[in-house]
Nucleic acid binder design. Structure first.
Lengths: 231, 231
DNA sequence: CTTATGCCGCTTGTATCCAATCGGTCAAGC
DNA sequence: GCTTGACCGATTGGATACAAGCGGCATAAG
C-alpha cells in the first residue's frame, strides 16, 4: 500500500506522526499501559513503519512511551509517587523561571501573560459542562501561561527542561483536579503571579510560583499523601 | 555490504551506534558545528543507515545534534551564554538534589560517594600530564560523583533532568577549566558536600552545591562575564 | 563583469523486504 | 497431573531500494 498521503502541507511525515501520537497520548486516547504496535499506527496514519518508528524513538526519549527490545512499545505508566516527583522538580524549575521573568520581562511578555490569563478565565466562565474538549482547552491555555513565563525568563535550557516535565505531568492533570475550587485557586495564583512579576519582585514571584505548583501537586496526591516518600 | 558485525554482545545495533556517536561527540572527536552524514557513520560503525538514523533522532532529542529537514545534521554549537544558562539550571536542580540527598541518603550512598571522591583525588594526584585520556577520566569520575548525589536524592525525574544537562555542559568543561586551582577548588567543594550530606543538613548541602556549580560556571565564562545576559 | 537560471550530485526521507527474537500454546514425557 | 520442551505466530530490528528536495556550479544572457 503505497499510501503517502499528500493532504497535510507538512514537510516530514515523521513529524506529523510524532505530533499525532503525542496528541493521542496527551488526550488519553491511547491511555497509559496500552500497547502500541508500529504497523497499526502506520496504517492508522497512512504512513509506513519507518516514520512511525522514528516518531516512537522520539516519544521514548521524551519519556512518553517505553520500548522494550524485542517485545514492543507501551505507553508509560506513572505512579502517583512519580507524578509527585515531577511536580517537585517543576516547582524548583518554574519558581526559578518566575524569578528570572520578574527581573527580565518586557512589556510584550506582560501583555502576553495578561492576554492568556484573560482568555483562560473567559473560557472557564463560559464553559457549559466539563466536556472533554473544554478541559483540554483549559489545560492548553494553562500550559501556555506557564510557557509564557518560561519565555520571559530568557533561558532556553530552563524552558526546555520545564516544558518537558509539564507535558508529562499533564497526563494526569487533564482528568483530575478540575473542579471549581481548584480552578479558583489556580486563577488566584496566576493573578498574584502577574502582580509579582509586574512589580519586578523576584523573590515574591518565585515564592508564588512555588506555592502554586506545590499546591497543585498536593491536590493530586491528596489521598496517598506521601509528600516525599522513599524510592 | 551486508556487514552486520557480530563482535559486540549487544542487543541492538541502534543502541551501540547511539553510544558510539555520543561518545565521539562528548570526547570532542566530532567537534561542534561539524557535519555528520548517515552514510559515513553507517560505514564507520559497520551498520546500515537505519540504526544510524534512529541514533541520530535520539541525539537530536537529547540536544546534541541539530537536524535540518533536507540538508543534513550538524553537531550543535553552544555559545558561552548558553553554557552559562545550562549551569544556572544545573545549580538549581543539583542543589535541590543535594538537599534531598542530605535528608534521604543511606549508608551505601555515603560510602559510594566517598569511594568516588577518593578515586577522583587519587587519579588527580597520580596523573602525569594533562593527557586527553586523563582529563576524560577525571571528567567521568566527576560526573559519577554528581550522579551519585542525584541517586541519593531518590527522585528519578530530577536525576534524569539534571543528568541530561550535565552531559551537554561537559562538552566544554572537558577542555577548559582543568588547571590546578580549579581542581583544588572542586575537590574542596566535594569534601564540604560530603560533610554536609553526612550531617543530614539539607540547607547546608544545598548551599554548598549551589556554590560549587555557580563557581564552576564563573570560571568558564570568566572573560565574557555576562552573568545573566539578555536573550 | 555581474546576475540569473538550469542542471547535477549529494543527502535525507520513505517504503518495502528479510532476519531475528520473544511469548504463547500445545503436546509429550516423567 | 505437572513440568518441560519445541513449534509457531506476531512483532520488532536491520538492510536496501527508490523518490524528493536542497545546494553548488557552470554557463549564458544582459
Amino acid at each position: 500500500m503505497t499510501a503517502n498521503r499528500p493532504d497535510k502541507p507538512g514537510l516530514r511525515m515523521a513529524d506529523r506522526v510524532y505530533e499525532d501520537i503525542r496528541r493521542e497520548i496527551l488526550t488519553g486516547l491511547i491511555g497509559p499501559g496500552e500497547r502500541i504496535t508500529e504497523e497499526v499506527l502506520a496504517e492508522r496514519f497512512g504512513a509506513s513503519r519507518t516514520p512511525v518508528r522514528s516518531a516512537i524513538v522520539r516519544l521514548a526519549s521524551d519519556g512518553f512511551v517505553e520500548m522494550t527490545p524485542r517485545s514492543g512499545t507501551v505507553v508509560k505508566t506513572r505512579t502517583a509517587c512519580e507524578i509527585a516527583e515531577i511536580y517537585d522538580v517543576r516547582a524548583v524549575l518554574e519558581s526559578m523561571a518566575a524569578r528570572l521573568a520578574a527581573e527580565r520581562h518586557d512589556a510584550d511578555d506582560l501583555a502576553g501573560l495578561r492576554g492568556i490569563q484573560d482568555e483562560l478565565e473567559r473560557r472557564a466562565a463560559g464553559r457549559t459542562a466539563s466536556g472533554a474538549s473544554a478541559v483540554e482547552e483549559l489545560s492548553s491555555l494553562n500550559k501556555a501561561f506557564h510557557v509564557a513565563i518560561l519565555d520571559a525568563a530568557r533561558n532556553a535550557t530552563l524552558r526546555e527542561s520545564a516544558e518537558r516535565l509539564m507535558d508529562i505531568g499533564f497526563l494526569i492533570n487533564t482528568y483530575a483536579n478540575f473542579d471549581e475550587s481548584e480552578i479558583a485557586r489556580s486563577f488566584s495564583d496566576h493573578r498574584k503571579l502577574l502582580m509579582a512579576i509586574e512589580s519586578r519582585d523576584g523573590a515574591w514571584s518565585e515564592a508564588v510560583m512555588r506555592a502554586h505548583i506545590l499546591g497543585a501537586r498536593n491536590s493530586l496526591t491528596e489521598p496517598a499523601a506521601t509528600p516525599a516518600a522513599k524510592r
